[in-house]
Simulated assay, not measured.
Amino acid sequence: MAQTPRNPPPERRKLSSESGVPPVAGSHAQAAASENTLKAYSKDWGHFARWCRRRGTDPLPPAPDIIALYLTSLATPGTSPSARPLAASTIERRLSGLAWNFTQRGFPLDRRDHRIAAALAGIKREHGRPPVQKEAIQPEDIMAMTDTLPHDLRGLRDRAILLLGYAGGLRRSEIVSLDVRKDGTPDSGGWIEIMDQGVLLTLNAKSGWREVEVGRGSSARTCPVQALEQWLHFAKIGFGPVFLRVSRDGKRTLDSRLSDKHVARLIKKTVLDAGIRAELPDKERLALFSGQSLRAGLANSASACERYVPQEPGHAPAEKPRPDRRRQDRFRINLTRAAGL
């Protein structure tokens, strides 16, 4: 009896090479990147595979000259008005997506190959521009932003998102990935533990697991912990995702977890509604603020406690307590109040 060959036939290998799902990517490789990153990488591969197909070439194995030509095409204006050239930073991220996909398919890509490196350097020199610095949200800004929110379920949820994200210096993906309890859902990115002095967030961040302490604020209006408690109470959430979608009438929660895109839209909408930087046109105001504005706001507002504030929220603090004293030292430094809340 003939044995089944280990390698799939060529036609099946070609089909898998054009698929958005890497055929050899295991669960550990998938877990190494966030859900949003995996979605972006899948789109990157799909676009590259279609580009290759239109030119009669196969995306596998990786050919440095083909990849260099592809990167150059991304920076070149298309024939239609909608086919605008991509920014140099976006093209570099596309290359990262391709490299990840090639590796998962068993073909590691050498990004330092002189053809790829030369193409990328030329794109940066011709189309590169400095990154846009997002403006930090100040304590008076976050108060004005939360004051624009309604008092229905949607308003309670969004108020908790803004205050918790600001006081914790959280990424928008970290905010929406929180669960009420440990091991709550398969797509969980961490969980919360509400205590007398505040709430402890355990997060699976880009750099690994970390804990974030958010102390109680100086008033009910600005306390992120109280806002979180009110949302969980009135939304009747005792397990699963902390932040859920809400019905159009704002009266009931839905089953699906909130998207991190909602956080970006929420920040921009409340910035406009609160009249922050009203001297600028709306388009310029929207470009100034993003999810990064919450993280930057904490670092700026809590400068009085600079010794205990990371250089960038989400990194290890300057002084780390000894493990045997870690629990008794919780909330000894209340960054919520130091930040003006």
Rank of each mutant, 00 (worst) to 15 (best):
Y41Q: 12
R111E: 06
A220N: 11
Q3L: 13
D260Y: 11
L228I: 06
K268W: 05
E229G: 14
H114I: 11
S73K: 03
L149C: 10
G20P: 13
L156S: 01
V246T: 15
M195N: 02
A2E: 13
T336P: 06
P150L: 02
P22Q: 06
D183I: 00
A167H: 06
H262C: 09
L203V: 12
K134F: 13
L232S: 06
E35C: 02
N300K: 11
L109R: 08
D147A: 08
S34M: 05
I66A: 10
A274Y: 10
Q197H: 12
L298V: 02
A31M: 05
S16Y: 10
T90Q: 10
S303R: 13
S27T: 15
G297P: 03
S173V: 08
Y308Q: 03
P85T: 12
N101E: 08
S293A: 03
I91L: 03
L244M: 10
S218W: 02
A144F: 02
P310R: 00
S256E: 15
L298P: 02
A264E: 09
K261S: 08
A274Q: 07
E319W: 05
I116Q: 04
D282Q: 11
G240V: 07
F107N: 08
E213N: 03
A49V: 01
E319L: 07
P23N: 11
L69E: 15
V246N: 07
R252A: 13
W51I: 01
R54N: 15
E213S: 03
S301Q: 05
K134C: 04
D44L: 08
E312K: 13
E35F: 07
R111F: 03
G155L: 01
H233F: 14
L86M: 06
S219L: 01
R327H: 10
R12C: 00
I66E: 11
K283T: 13
W45H: 10
G275A: 08
L163V: 00
A49K: 12
G184M: 03
G128V: 09
V246Y: 10
S34T: 14
P77Q: 05
N7C: 07
F48Y: 15
K261I: 02
H127Q: 14
S303T: 09
G340A: 04
A144Y: 00
S89W: 01
A205M: 01
F102V: 11
I161S: 02
S256A: 12
P61I: 00
A299D: 06
Q328C: 13
G97S: 11
T57N: 00
L286C: 10
L178N: 04
P108C: 06
A220Y: 03
